[in-house]
Design a protein around this nucleic acid. Structure first.
Lengths: 194, 194
DNA sequence: CTTGCACGAACGAACATTCATTCGTATCTT
DNA sequence: AAGATACGAATGAATGTTCGTTCGTGCAAG
């Protein structure tokens, strides 16, 4: 029914930005209302409350990562290329929607408990799928034999916080970023000629 | 004059724990008072206010990292071993005081502005020193030629968030952790036989 | 030995703000 | 006319902090 972009979407995007800059708890509904040129009470014509915003941001991104993961799992490629594709996925999401990724990464713990548990499950699911790919790569002789948990979190940490330091309008291009991170992380797994 | 541990220290440690679990903003002085079996008003006999606690935690840890960095810089060793020593430093601090590291990593942005700027400077100083070591390693032919900024933040991200997933009473020992992280990160820099 | 006093530490009550949210009502769009 | 949207006012709860006071301990003066 809405024309170009629903007011709800505008609110969600402004909220993500505020959450990124000040954090969820430190962002008031008045701050958010100011950002979208409304009064605080008017927000409730579009959203049910503060926590709904956080939920939307968190699960939207969780699903984005999981959808990407499941698509990559299906591809008929070796595990090296799957890890490369996952690195690409992280960089892709982090750069194309880096404002909501911050809220997703930092603020999910302020979810309340039915959703908090569900979120943790999704996160754990993603990590286990990532870990399986690393394990498969070791079994197939593509990777050096490393502890899969350590490798998993080393890689995930490295890519999860890209948004924190990488500004796309920099001396570094996205392709460069991806190629170099692949080289560092996959090189460490013993993959030759990355 | 104090017997075993000053009450101020007790408060600071309890605060670090609460900040880790709920975040700085979401932790009230009443929560903190409960944690040390006091009333909120009594806290002010020991500390000047909420922000002093955050300042202490942040700068205490910032100085710890910088002191470690400066000590490592002085050592007569090659750059590979310096990076190894830095990885060791991060794991050391993350495991021996992992509760205040969380607050240090996540909550520093809630500092107010004279201290906030000072903190950012310290952080930037640390990063630049780290970067210099990587650059020196490339110049000396120890490392493969990579973009130093990308390498820097990939390594720092990987080690900065160890506390987030590593539980010391696990199947993985600290030595194992260190050896494997070295292998992954230094292997990616082209160092042989790590 | 006893009295008096200073002091650290704890407390309950109260402070002014700020918070998210609700409600009744007015204005706009169709 | 009707439905969506915006608003001001008000709500109760929670925030960090201050205040006046009290209690106990240790030490100096008597």
């Amino acid at each position: 029914m809405e024309a170009s972009k629903s007011k709800k979407q505008t609110i969600l995007e402004a909220a993500a930005e505020l959450f990124r800059d000040r954090g969820y708890v430190a962002t008031s509904m008045r701050d958010l209302a100011d950002a979208v040129q409304l009064k605080a009470s008017s927000l409730y014509n579009h959203i049910s409350g503060k926590e709904e915003i956080l939920q939307t941001i968190c699960f939207q991104n969780a699903n984005r990562f999981l959808a990407g993961m499941k698509e990559i799992e299906k591809r008929p490629i070796n595990n090296t290329d799957k890890v490369k594709a996952l690195i690409h996925l992280h960089i892709q999401i982090a750069t194309e929607d880096f404002t909501s990724i911050t809220a997703f990464n930092d603020e999910w713990r302020h979810l309340s408990d039915p959703e908090l548990s569900r979120f943790k499950e999704l996160r754990r699911d993603y990590e286990l799928r990532f870990k399986s790919i690393i394990q498969a790569g070791i079994d197939a002789g593509e990777f050096v034999s490393v502890d899969t948990t350590i490798a998993l979190f080393t890689i995930i940490s490295a890519v999860r916080w890209i948004y924190d330091w990488f500004k796309p309008n920099r001396a570094i291009s996205m392709d460069q970023l991806e190629e170099q991170i692949e080289r560092i992380l996959l090189g460490g797994l013993g993959v030759k000629g990355v």
